[in-house]
């Protein structure tokens, strides 16, 4: 490799909280190793500023952020568990429970709102939504297809109550 990999803290010589008090997470660290996270941790030199990146990666790998996982990250980054949890709980996209079989996200952004997102929500909050995990997002930025829902990662554009019900009927339960 010709180029040296910069990490922000190398360049800015930022002090890490490493040599401060021992993390209160250490006592809680579980026996799980979370080996899949290792490459990402190594890549970031265990810097505390990479916390959100690591949380994103961890959720991608494990589906949600479990308590042992948060404790593991706290001990790896030498941060108090409280600040790891504090950061994780601040952001809407992090989840602390395992996901259900089907994920359904209704966009409630401005364009979807004025084009009837609430009628889609009414379907889902009624019988149509049984067995689905329903959440909302404030705009995916693809407003040309408004109103839209995201079903297991696939965007369904220009929905109405009937088309949504029909589509949901086709999902394996």
């Amino acid at each position: 490799m010709k180029r040296q990999r910069f990490t922000p803290l190398d360049l800015l010589k930022v002090k890490e909280p490493r040599d401060q008090a021992v993390s209160d997470a250490e006592t809680e660290a579980s026996t799980e190793t979370f080996a899949e996270l290792e490459p990402c941790l190594r890549d970031r030199n265990g810097q505390a500023s990479a916390l959100i990146e690591l949380l994103n990666r961890a959720q991608e790998l494990y589906g949600h952020l479990s308590k042992p996982l948060l404790a593991h990250l706290a001990s790896e980054l030498v941060l108090p568990l409280s600040s790891v949890y504090g950061t994780a709980s601040f952001y809407h996209l992090f989840r602390f429970q395992a996901p259900a079989a089907h994920q359904l996200v209704v966009c409630t952004g401005t364009a979807c709102h004025v084009k009837g997102a609430d009628r889609l929500l009414a379907v889902l909050e009624g019988d149509g939504g049984a067995g689905l995990e329903l959440s909302r997002v404030r705009c995916l930025g693809t407003c040309g297809g408004a109103p839209l829902v995201v079903v297991d990662g696939v965007v369904w554009t220009h929905q109405n109550a009937a088309s949504l019900q029909q589509g949901l009927g086709g999902l394996p339960r």
């Binding site: 910069f6 922000p8 959100i52 990146e53 949380l55 994103n56 601040f90 952001y91 809407h92 996209l93 992090f94 404030r138």
Partner: peptide, 9 residues
């Protein structure tokens, strides 16, 4: 460097 958020307006 790219930093990805996690949903916070």
């Amino acid at each position: 460097e790219l930093r990805v958020g996690a949903g916070a307006y």
